[in-house]
Design a protein around this nucleic acid. Sequence first.
DNA 1: CGCTGCCTTGATCTTCTTCAAAACGTGTGG
DNA 2: CCACACGTTTTGAAGAAGATCAAGGCAGCG
Lengths: 251, 251
Amino acid sequence: MSKRRTTPVEPEFAEPHMCSTGTRLQILGRVPFFTGLPAEAIERINERFQDRGYNAGEMIYLAGEEAVRLYVVATGKVKLLRHTADGQEIMLDILTPGEHFGSLAALGDAVYPDTAQAHTGVCALSISAEDFRAILEAYPATALRVLDITGARLRDAQERVRQLSAYTVEQRIAAALLKLGEKLGEPHEEGLLIQMPLSREDLAAMTGTTTETASRTLRRFQNDGLINAGRQWVAIADREQLERLAATEAV
Amino acid sequence: MSKRRTTPVEPEFAEPHMCSTGTRLQILGRVPFFTGLPAEAIERINERFQDRGYNAGEMIYLAGEEAVRLYVVATGKVKLLRHTADGQEIMLDILTPGEHFGSLAALGDAVYPDTAQAHTGVCALSISAEDFRAILEAYPATALRVLDITGARLRDAQERVRQLSAYTVEQRIAAALLKLGEKLGEPHEEGLLIQMPLSREDLAAMTGTTTETASRTLRRFQNDGLINAGRQWVAIADREQLERLAATEAV
DNA sequence: CGCTGCCTTGATCTTCTTCAAAACGTGTGG
DNA sequence: CCACACGTTTTGAAGAAGATCAAGGCAGCG
């Protein structure tokens, strides 16, 4: 087996990342909770949105700041993080184009409960919480879509609670890889390649363990032929086996 | 210090639990997401609801069943659980009167992702998922309320992910007690008494540990004067100290 | 009373973290 | 194009936190 070490992951455009490509109208039309709205509604909504580019690693907002905007990923990947008192990072979610983050509530004194960081170069659209609230009031179908998405995220988070409560590190890493593979996987000679830079540290922050343990676990997986991995990338070679290991009953 | 062992927790009515007390109209009017609706709307909504009593320990629905109804707790406490393959229970949440659980989506083929069990004697109202969907469509303000509640639960779940990822058992138990105290606490000579039957096993299922460890931790807390506890009950004696231990930055 | 669930306690063992250091890859500047 | 420097990954050894296994004890109830 060829031991490829250089990343097969395609870079997410050049950075500094710009939002220029295409009109925001096109992007907004593809956001899950706006689909189905009449074109003129989207046009009116579009006027309320701003766009902005972020370089990889750049913070979009910090936990504790006043929660005033709602964001939608246009291009790139966004990490949602929480920190512990001693600075350790917990990755709550990784968001891809079309997904939203930030403030849903129109209340004035709320703060962001988490930190949003551009994981790759990112273009994000954003709107003030009040304006978004007004849209939800004007278009009930959109509100229900947002509710569905939020409900799905809640179930995901609860599933993670279960995993952290009852599963071993090995099972959690297997489950995390499978979920990433489902969300970001692309067929590749190395296997189902997870299309984003993914360090051992990232994986540790996702599964509640340490870089060292993540590294050791990936090595074991690789030795057993379950995955192929290198610096900042992982590809799933044997999905069935990995699923058996994770003991995941499907969603 | 008087070492009281008998439970100071007041029983949640006699079981077999009936829903008889008061009209459902009154209950529905006090459900957070219906408040503010005109009386005639609530009356129309009421027609769609059924009520039913459950004994303590009785299952309301099981994970994996077809998700066809949405429930609202009228009286009593409901546990939301997930199970592992080997039968271990993870407690996701404990619901009090006015809170909802079950299916939010109108989709036909969805299944409940968790199990709902009556923790005390319970009266629950329920409505078909389709009917509830129709209500959300008819009353956008209600839909936004439900969205807010779901968003708050999502943040709670994410906070738990953080705790499980980074905190020790001792910190998680302290945090769990504080949260319960906030939700169910009543002043009492023993301290802030958590008004529900709460076994070591329950606490273990909430914090992702074992009964034995929960027991040892509570004993340590009690020896340090942080709590008073007995069979199936816990009261918080020294809130500040417990908070310092949990290292919880407030919501 | 004696039974049935909780709860407690102790001893052992496994998993994972922590600390430390070396190896490797990648990009940079000479 | 090479060599260096930096961030990532790997590996090892020691230590800690908590799980597991195994009894016993205690409270309430029939």
